[in-house]
Nucleic acid binder design. Structure first.
Length: 121
DNA sequence: CAAATGACGGGGT
DNA sequence: AACCCCGCCATTT
């Protein structure tokens, strides 16, 4: 297995895991945040092949413009819409308002999460 | 090794 | 807004 790709995988999944409830990020934003610009396709590829046991908020990752990428009519899409609705994210017409729910992690946000700082603050 | 394949993105029409 | 087209990238044919 390719080492650099493996590092990218780790970084990308970390970013996805850090997206707060009620917030969303696009594939491109996740890739850039992970330090692998232009790798938006890789983000989608990884999310499409997640291990059976995972607690990643994959439903918070959307295509450019806030569009739900999963195929129309697929059960996976329904699952995503359901999960989004479950946390107050409206996806009318298969589209989420990035202005309302778009999230850009700050360095501090990531550090706080990575080191689990602020748990009792 | 060339071509095809995607949970993609951006610009142009 | 809806398409189309092309660039992008790891994998698979």
């Amino acid at each position: 297995m390719n080492s650099s790709t493996e590092r990218a995988r780790q970084a990308i999944l970390d970013v996805v895991a850090a997206i707060p409830r009620g917030k969303v990020m696009t594939y491109g934003a996740v890739a850039r945040q992970a330090g692998w610009p232009r790798h938006s396709r890789l983000v989608g590829r990884l999310l499409s092949a997640l291990p059976a046991e995972h607690d990643l908020p994959w439903h918070r990752v959307l295509a450019a413009g806030g569009r739900v990428a999963l195929p129309e009519g697929s059960s996976a899409r329904e699952e995503q819409l359901s999960r989004l609705a479950g946390e107050g994210i409206e996806a009318a017409g298969g589209r989420v308002s990035l202005r309302e729910h778009g999230w850009q992690a700050t360095v501090d946000d990531l550090d706080r999460w990575l080191w689990k700082i602020g748990d009792e603050n």
